[in-house]
Simulated scan of single mutants.
Amino acid sequence: MSEPVMRRTLSGGLARSSRIPVSRIYSPLGKALSLCSVLSILAFTVAPLTVQAAEPASLYSIMSERAQSSLLLDITAAGKRLVAVGDRGHILYSDDNGSTWTQGKVPTRQLLTAVYFVDDKHGWAVGHDAQILATTDGGQTWVKQFEDLSREAPLLDIWFKDDAKTGFAVGAYGALLETTDGGANWEDVSDRMNNEDGYHLNSIIAVKDSGLFVVGELGVMFRSADWGQTWETVESPYDGSLFGAVATKEPATLLVYGLRGHLFRSSDFGDTWQQIEINTPNNGPLEFGLADGELLADGSIVVVGHGGTVLKSTDDGRNFSLVNRADRVSLSSAATTDNGKLILVGQGGVHVASPTGADLGQQ
């Protein structure tokens, strides 16, 4: 195994990087949506596995009228604004509950996999080439804080403390990066986890009154009670890949989800797990992959996935209602609007839905 080497971030700071096992192939759609085989053909059309050369500083995402209907992988709220990220470096924002969308000025054309805001101005996005982008104006303009072409793999999720200083990014081959200065410098701290096989880390979340939780490939789980300084391996209830996790409004309580509709709930920060059974209208078990979840402002939880799957819980994840959208598009993330509608993103871009997730014409 090679010795770690130091790599310089775009802001001049140094970050450690280790050799990546190139024999493993990572599906390029990133995050939960990308890891499910249903969209494997789409993955090769929108994001080739070929490693691209470093981009010139002037190469920005192309403004396109079709960006709103292109592949989008994540959406979040920045105050009252909604911000979505996805294919070809597209970052879109809406100030009217998803009715209209404007493209931000983004210094990349790589696939972006996740976005996170701490307030209405300060946010970060991650994606292929291990890129980390940042904004201080609510998503209108972005700067590139970090990239590492040698990784040949994407970052898949990002989380920041409310102080906008301390943050972590996770990704393929066990990547764990940390910043303590708002992203001016990023350090590879992957060795804090016992992940010698380099399993992909798909999601990082904060669990109320408990700490940070990470899930990934082949059911791996890690938790940190000191908010990222030390990490403990958690025994997983499932040996298939987990694509995401979402905290509830209750202390120490979270849900994790992944392949073939597998969904688990813990109320003790991962010590024990209960499987949540989801049955379809024909009484068969849900077998679509679940990609992402969101705790909404009213305390309800939405989980979305393949086949137009939208799950919603109003009791902190103990029970879920199920809607299979008529369009059957694969969904990768969800957010809510002031008027109670859901904004779903994924295959086909932005989809405005009813509070249950159904198409507005499906009700």
Results as ranks from 00 to 15, higher is better:
Asp163Cys: 07
His128Lys: 08
Ala130Pro: 01
Asp298Met: 02
Ser37Leu: 14
Thr230Glu: 00
Gln103Lys: 04
Ala206Trp: 08
Phe222Ser: 09
Ser203Arg: 14
Gln363Pro: 10
Ser150Ala: 14
Ser94Glu: 03
Val106His: 08
Pro56Cys: 04
Ser99His: 09
His200Arg: 08
Glu277Leu: 13
Val51Pro: 08
Gly174Lys: 06
Asp87Phe: 09
Leu296Gly: 04
Asn195Gly: 07
Gly104Asp: 05
Phe222Thr: 11
Asp119Cys: 05
Val83Asn: 10
Asp226Phe: 04
Gln362Lys: 05
Ala225Cys: 05
Asn202Gly: 04
Val302Leu: 12
Asp87Trp: 08
Val85Thr: 06
Lys144Leu: 13
Val329Phe: 14
Pro107Lys: 08
Val215Gln: 01
Arg260Glu: 12
Thr356Tyr: 08
Gly244Met: 09
Ser18Gly: 03
Phe264Ser: 00
Leu286Ala: 06
Val345Ser: 00
Asn185Val: 07
Arg192Asp: 02
Gly30Ala: 10
Ile205Gln: 06
Leu254Trp: 08
Gln363Lys: 15
Phe160Cys: 11
Gly211Ala: 03
Leu73Ile: 15
Val5Arg: 12
Ser224His: 08
Asp209Thr: 05
Trp101Glu: 04
Val220Phe: 05
Gly270Met: 02
Ala247Gln: 05
Ala32Ser: 13
Val170Gly: 11
Ala206Phe: 13
Ala353Asp: 00
Pro48Trp: 08
Ser94Gln: 02
